[in-house]
Design a protein around this nucleic acid. Structure first.
Lengths: 126, 126
DNA sequence: TCATTAGTTCAGAAATTATGAACTACAGGG
DNA sequence: CCCTGTAGTTCATAATTTCTGAACTAATGA
């Protein structure tokens, strides 16, 4: 198994970051890794979406996040230790990650509110 | 020709915005539309990249920006009047567009500096 | 009416992404 | 050591998305 590739911070591009985070599964993973201050092994995310994600697909998602420079992955025995590189990215592109994560949270809140109000509507209609 | 589709601001998603702006040609177009306070017609961008972009491709790029909610396009006689929707987006996702545009500018500056220093190196070597 | 300009649409080609199956790497027994 | 199980990667191909030339629409003006 060839060693995992991680770009140097100067090689990280905005395009790659935006592309990596434009996928709902990948942002969810990334948000989770940032949230847990420490790390995460991949299999925790098998059910991150509504439909279970095959592990080969998950592996590719982690690869995409790594190669965009968003996370660092290193082997810890049999499993993977994934950490976010947000401090480095913050240095290179100040405020970028924070703005994206915040926008995502706003969207999530909006969706939750919309679902709740829809439920109320359905309840009233009965 | 069916009328152009524009999502309502509540329907705009972070994923769609990031995806739209993860393409170098599209960010260039978008940055230009924001830069020019007013508008831009498409053909100005035929040579925005190093290689000329076919106009069907360009049309698709504009469509992607429109459908992501980033710009609004309306016919003005024979040509197109494109305006950014950044005020709306700022309201929904504060700071997002600014952070992305700023990150892009940083990257552009870095690239220019790198090119300059490379030229100096080549000059010294002669 | 015809020619011109600006842009869209469509269909097939090219590129990217998803996924099952096979494989690698490690850990913990026996 | 050699199994067995677990975690994750790789590879080949299927599914999806994107690109692009060609045909088309719509407006303008001579």
């Amino acid at each position: 198994m060839r060693p995992l590739f991680h770009p140097a911070i100067e090689e990280v591009t905005v395009e790659a970051i935006l592309h990596a985070l434009s996928d709902p599964v990948r942002v969810a993973i990334y948000a989770d890794i940032i949230g847990q201050q420490c790390s995460q092994n991949c299999s925790n995310f098998l059910n991150i979406s509504d439909k279970p994600i095959p592990k080969s697909t998950l592996s590719q998602h982690f690869k995409a996040l790594r190669e965009a420079g968003l996370i660092r992955g290193e082997r810890r025995g049999v499993e993977m230790h994934n950490t976010s590189r947000c401090a480095e990215i913050e240095q290179r592109f100040p405020g970028l990650i924070a703005a994206i994560v915040q926008a995502h949270n706003i969207q999530l809140q909006d969706k939750l509110r919309a679902e709740k109000s829809h439920k109320r509507k359905v309840a009233r209609a009965k």
